[in-house]
Design a protein around this nucleic acid. Structure first.
Lengths: 112, 112
DNA sequence: TCTCGGTACTCGGTGTCACTGGGTACTGGT
DNA sequence: ACCAGTACCCAGTGACACCGAGTACCGAGA
C-alpha cells in the first residue's frame, strides 16, 4: 500500500497481533494469513515472525510447540496476563491518538 | 506517555503536522507549542524540527523566512499542492488502519 | 554590565521497527 | 526424484521519534 502504511504500522502492528492473540491463540503462519484476510495484503511472514520473537522475549505471550500434520511443528502463541495488560495500554494509547487525529481530520476536511 | 506512543507516532506525527499546516501556515516553535496544547505533551522541539526538514526536502511544504521580534527569524512553513496530495494519501491510509483496528477493538473488548 | 529566561532553530547519535530477500525443514502428490 | 504448500528463522536496510547538546537573538532585573 505504500510507505505511509509501513511507517504507520510501526507500533500498531504489534497491538494488532496481540489483539488477534487475545481473541484466540495462534501460530505465526496463521497470523500472517489472518492479517492478509483482513486487508493487510502486503505484510509478509518475516515481519510477523520477527514481531512474535520480540513479544515473546518481553514475556507478553506464552508459547507452546504443537506438531503439525504438514511441515514443521507450529509455535502457538497465547496472550498471558502481562500481554493483556500491555494490550490494555495499547488501546489507551491508540484511543488517545485516534481521537486527536480524528478531530484534526474533521477540522481540516472542509476545505478541499 | 511511554514507548507505545513513541512507536505509534512514527508515520502519524508527520500527518498530524501536515494537517496542522493545512489549517494554516506555522513555524516550528509554534507547531511544537500547538502539539503540546493538544495533549502531545512530551513531543520535544528536536523531533518537530527534524520532521520539518524532512518534509521540506521532499517538497511537501513551502518555506518563508520571517523576522521575529524575539529571537532568530522564523521559518514559516505552508502546505503546497504536493503536500496536500500527500496529506490526502495520509488520510486514506489512516482511515483504512483506523477502521481495521477499531473493528479489532470491538471484537475483543467483550471478554475482560 | 552581566546574567537569566524566553524565543527560535540546528545537529550527531541511539534504539526500535517494518521490510527485504534470502534460507532451512517437513509433508504429500505427481 | 521433484515440486508446491506448510512453517519457521535470520542478517541487513531505511525510516523515524527521541535524546542531549549547542547556537543565536532579545528584553528585564541584579
Amino acid at each position: 500500500m505504500g510507505k505511509q502504511m509501513t511507517e504507520m504500522l510501526k507500533g500498531t502492528l504489534e497491538g494488532i497481533v496481540l489483539a488477534l492473540l487475545a481473541d484466540r491463540p495462534a501460530y505465526g503462519y496463521e497470523i500472517t494469513a489472518r492479517l492478509r484476510e483482513q486487508g493487510f495484503s502486503d505484510i509478509v511472514e518475516g515481519t510477523v515472525y520477527a514481531l512474535l520473537v520480540r513479544v515473546e522475549q518481553r514475556g507478553l505471550v506464552d508459547v507452546e510447540k504443537v506438531p503439525s500434520e504438514k511441515g514443521p511443528p507450529r509455535k502457538v502463541y497465547s496472550l498471558n496476563p502481562q500481554g493483556r495488560a500491555y494490550l490494555d495500554e495499547f488501546w489507551r494509547t491508540w484511543s488517545f491518538l485516534a481521537e486527536r487525529i480524528g478531530q484534526l481530520h474533521d477540522d481540516t476536511e472542509g476545505d478541499d
